[in-house]
């Protein structure tokens, strides 16, 4: 049981070279796999391929295989795929339906379209709204939210589908620090309680340090670094791959580089 990418290469329609691959990767149930990398290193493309949207929806050419719990993703119908892999797009306005009058209806849109019983739809909708801390926005117009609020609504809409795998493309990019911490904790809870496997693309390495067990750093569509998140985040090659180490680690390095005399008090202050 997992999403398995084996020998993947993907090229967008009309592109002269592949945006992704060759690459092998696996998203396991109940775990968070972190993905980082420079701009245009293939992170969003990896999301589209893993969620089965590329090439099925966006075209292009895929080589290698994407298997979701053993089934070839290419053979799954869109509604089957949607229940297995929920994808959160980077830009919430790409995600929101634009057809609903309230945040509650927007969040209920997915589960309602799965044909569930009404009480199940309601239960999932409230659960998802609470998970990301926006039950207070339920009566609001989705078109009249701030950027960060829209991002939380988009995430709630995906969570409400209760997919077996979550593919999240920078879910915290527009969020304030407390919102970021809330989403990070919610993802850990979702992984633990529903057993969902999560592929999480993040520039905020603090978030990856906090919740990802394993991580991959992409460069030109390939895995330049991979392994346990703590090891990858401490790798000296991280900076040249366009990825900043977590704030605490960076500050410690800057202090040491500046020759600030190291003391137990400093160690404690950084802890």
């Amino acid at each position: 049981m997992a999403i398995e990418l084996a020998g993947i290469t993907y090229r967008y329609a009309g592109a002269s070279r592949a945006s992704l691959g060759p690459l092998d990767l696996s998203v396991a149930p109940g775990r968070v796999l972190g993905v980082a990398g420079a701009n245009e290193s293939g992170k969003t493309t990896l999301c589209l391929v893993t969620a089965g949207l590329a090439p099925a929806v966006v075209g292009g050419k895929l080589e290698g295989s994407v298997r979701v719990d053993g089934a070839d993703a290419a053979g799954l119908k869109p509604h089957e795929l949607a229940q297995r892999c929920g994808m959160l797009f980077q830009n919430p306005s790409t995600q929101l339906s634009g057809t609903t009058a309230t945040v509650f209806e927007e969040t209920a849109f997915g589960p309602a379209n799965l044909g569930l019983a009404l009480e199940d739809v309601l239960e999932r909708t409230w659960w998802a709204l609470r998970a990301v801390g926006i039950e207070g926005l339920a009566p609001r117009d989705p078109a009249r939210l701030s950027g960060g609020q829209s991002q939380l609504v988009a995430l709630a809409g995906v969570l409400a589908l209760r997919p077996r795998y979550l593919i999240l493309d920078e879910p915290t990019s527009e969020l304030d620090p407390a919102g970021t911490a809330l989403v990070a904790d919610a993802l850990v809870r979702v992984a633990r309680e529903t057993g969902a496997g999560i592929l999480l693309v993040e520039h905020k390495t603090e978030v990856l340090a906090r919740i990802a067990a394993e991580m991959v750093v992409l460069a030109r569509g390939r895995a330049a670094l991979s392994g346990p998140a703590t090891e990858v985040l401490g790798d000296p090659r991280l900076a040249e791959l366009g990825v900043e180490a977590p704030a605490r680690m960076r500050l410690e390095r800057e202090l040491r580089a500046a020759g600030v005399e190291w003391t137990a008090a400093l160690d404690e202050a950084l802890a």
């Binding site: 304030d176 407390a178 500050l251 800057e254 202090l255 500046a258 008090a265 202050a269």
Partner: peptide, 27 residues
Amino acid sequence: TYLEPPIAAVVGARLGLGSTPTASGLI
């Protein structure tokens, strides 16, 4: 208001160095 001070400010305060919101200020 859902904000956190920069890490340099937190470290500076823990060390009793006053308000040091930047790494260079902390150093």
